[in-house]
Amino acid sequence: MSIEVEGLGYTYMKKSPYEKRALDNVSFRVEEGEFVAVVGQTGSGKSTLMQHLNGLIKLTEGKIKVDDIDLTARRPDYKRLRFLVGMVFQYPEYQLFDETVAKDVGFGCRNAGLSAEETEDRVRQAIALVGLDYDEIADRSPFELSGGQKRRVAIAGVVAMRPKVLILDEPTAGLDPVGRREIMEMVLSLHRTVCPTVLMVSHDMEAVAEYCDRVLVLSHGTLAYDATPAALFAKGEQLRDMGLDTPASVQLSTRLRQNGWDVPLCLTPKALAEAIAKALEGSR
């Protein structure tokens, strides 16, 4: 199970005064089990790229292969692709529509033509996986839940489709700090249990540094970097030119290293504090 993208390009509204090149010659490969962050300024082509991966945008330039589904084929199996690659849009709670939480979460399963029992099974499991209580919530209207609960229910709707790849577009957007942390922990646990491969679009570099194995950086539609967080954030200045922040811990540890401190490049406050303490002990 892998995703292969080669020479992907895309132009919106071709041959009109509003023509816009959104992606240009993007190539990368994601293996099963990776937690990949996709970052870049608004308008850098992140959403266009993600929507290609589950066939919401038809491939026009380049090649994409997800598992054994080749999108360059004459009639790719989009239906199977959409169940293989689950897509959680930004502010997913705005797509809720059904009378009850259980029905809404089961929407994808019903579209796949699964039996009522199978659907219920999956709905139960998905609701538990996003950290909600099935018995308490299943029969309630999704519109009467709190903001954070709504978002979980919306994510459960995608998890119930049992995708092998989970794509999330800024899953923590608009949430308060506690909500952000809870959602990130939930995504991490999904990554470890049911959806081995995760691609997450994010603007939150602290979260990227803390949770992801690998970062794809898009800039003006091209893939500018494909690196581990540590390798990427070591490029501080170049990232700033692309409008991206560097985590405070990385900035501080870089400056300390330049000043002769014996600390590694640290991605999180905790790692940095421990490294500083250790370095101080060593020097005494």
């Binding site: 929507q51 589950n54 919401l56 239906k79 959409r82 169940f83 689950g86 897509m87 849009f89 997913p92 705005y94 797509q95 929407f107 994808g108 579209n111 796949a112 709707g157 995608v158 489709m161």
Partner: peptide, 16 residues
């Protein structure tokens, strides 16, 4: 824009 986004999101959940 919103309609477009909702349509995409439901399509992603297998709606035809």
């Amino acid at each position: 824009e919103e309609t477009d986004r909702i349509m995409l999101a439901q399509k992603a959940r297998g709606a035809s």
